[in-house]
Design a protein around this nucleic acid. Structure first.
Lengths: 332, 332
DNA sequence: ATGAAAGCGCTAACAG
DNA sequence: CTGTTAGCGCTTTCAT
């Protein structure tokens, strides 16, 4: 049974804890925050009093006193504000909001216009923002962040020396997909890329080029932007330009599904004539006909890592890559 | 060019504005918040000073002073914590986080265990939570919220007298789908329902029953839970139990897509033998073969409405229904 | 190691 | 209508 410490209603405050422990609020504060100096006995009594009272620190008061901000901003790069409705951005936001909840803070979602790199810097200056998770940033946007604000940012995408990056290991993921295609006898393997402005897709592109070079096959590239629509047109373009193509790898499942649509329309059999593989393993990859071979993108784990790093302010490695797992289905 | 008001760095505070306008901070506060009493001239000078200084109120300080909380919690009902990774919950969270950003606050995401209805009440008591958007609540959960906390809650799903509800008009949506099926000659129309514990699906169920009764046709029901897997098994069950079924309407596109899979596997032609329709108009509805006839669910608009109501504390109607639009594709 | 006191920036009584 | 005075709950110098 939780005892009431104050005459009136309301949650117990640090003052209640201090009173019950027989110390000052200052000591109670220091004892509770592991950092400050405090005697073992004080620590013990304060901890006990806090437990008895069911005390939970007020994040708002703490944020005001430390100017640490009370929310973590998710900033998503893109050409239009439409990125705010993007399923990928939604997954990142939900995972951030879950991690944030455990820290007593919230998450807010912002569009980072590609044409205005300074916007990220402005967000970083905001007093009530405690940290930022930037999704799909450009080098220009990262460069616009003032030095002193960089400690509070983590990137899902490319990073810098002082802005840590958390991302799927799309190089290895891509390599495994291409190797799987090669192992199943494909040799004329085309790739539908991601948006050209998105630097973190370069790693996948390089991996594709290298894997093909190792096998002595020339690259066949068509530009995509992760959407089904461009996947469709890119696949059509590929089959026109290189009619003997026997496999298409799309960076992004939606584009791969678009490619599937284009191939079906022109009477190309999948996987008989052409194998198709994607990237991300979205829910629909298992529902399409044929089921889509793809490689996973652990977005929730990546986001949790980035959010935790920002919230705990703990310095970590400049780059953290999360493994991507190949998922074989009927399309290859 | 923005002038610096303080000697040191840092954003301008209300004190800076007051000083520049030649009034006290109290007056400045009242002038800025439209509510309090203030003379027109004071209002004007304060507004001007604020503009000159580029002043933006500090939401954290305001939240501390008014105990209004600094984040809005999205609480999603479900059997397991897995709901935190649900695409629907993610959309709601992202839309909430977008609306919250405009108010200088954040959003946090929480699981509301079905077996512990009191959890919603606990969330509502939380000091640093300014408002709650509860998704898919049960009557028991809503009943567990203390009276005084109800003004800060909006529901996406069922509501109560004092907890406003924002939801898609699934009754009209369902009726339109069934009427469309009837109009295209279907008479033996089955329905795959949502989870039985989810009360807001009752409206759709009733609409289905009524539309069928009006046409003199008996209902054919199979239980689903919005997933593709149960859609698949429910469709199989339907075709076994009522082999002459000529249409299946699933409450939820994923279930409809699952039904599509089940029918294809057993050699049933869609839409030749059986028409299939869903609900929600998710992205995959346009990607499947055949494309899925469905009716829209404007989740972002609904969420924005709910979030705005909570953040502005403005009393509104107990129920707000958002229209659902029929989208015809090849599956019917 | 500890306590007293001064804020963090804003709002809300309470007089005038 | 306006200024003065207290807080909101916590952190953080600065003495002791």
């Amino acid at each position: 049974m939780v005892e009431e410490a104050r005459g009136s209603a309301g949650e117990p405050t640090l003052a209640d804890v201090a009173r019950r422990a027989g110390v000052s609020v200052a000591t109670a504060s220091r004892a509770l925050s592991v950092r400050g100096p405090a005697s073992a006995s004080a620590r013990h009594r304060v901890a006990e009093a806090a437990r008895d009272l069911g005390y939970a620190p007020n994040p708002v008061a703490r944020a005001l006193a430390t100017r640490s901000g009370t929310r973590i901003a998710v900033a998503v790069g893109g050409h239009t504000a439409h990125v705010l409705n993007d399923p990928y951005a939604a997954r990142v936001t939900a995972a951030t909001a879950t991690t944030a909840a455990a820290h007593g803070v919230g998450a807010s979602l912002h569009w980072l216009p590609l044409h205005d790199p300074a916007e990220l810097g402005r967000l970083a200056e905001n007093r009530d923002i405690g940290g930022i998770i930037v999704v799909n940033p450009t080098p220009a946007a990262l460069a616009a962040v003032p030095r002193r604000a960089r400690a509070r940012i983590a990137s899902i995408g490319i990073g810098t020396r002082d802005i840590p990056s958390f991302d799927v290991d799309n190089a290895t993921g891509t390599r495994r997909v291409v190797e799987h295609l090669l192992a199943t006898g494909r040799r004329r393997i085309a790739m539908i890329t991601g948006p050209s402005w998105l630097p973190c897709t370069d790693r996948a592109l390089t991996a594709y080029r290298r894997a093909l070079a190792d096998a002595g096959a020339p690259p066949r590239l068509a530009a995509g932007d992760f959407t089904a629509a461009t996947g469709e047109s890119a696949a059509a373009e590929i089959m026109t330009r290189w009619p003997d193509t026997d496999a298409i790898f799309a960076l992004g499942d939606l584009s791969a599904l678009g490619a599937l649509t284009a191939l079906r329309r022109t009477g190309v059999d999948v996987p008989g004539d052409v194998a198709v593989a994607g990237f991300d393993d979205i829910a629909y990859a298992t529902l399409s006909r044929p089921g889509l071979t793809t490689t996973t993108n652990p977005v929730e784990a990546i986001t949790t890592g980035a959010a935790t790093a920002v919230l705990d302010r703990r310095p970590g490695p400049p780059q953290t890559f999360y493994p991507s797992t190949l998922v074989l289905r009927a399309s290859t």
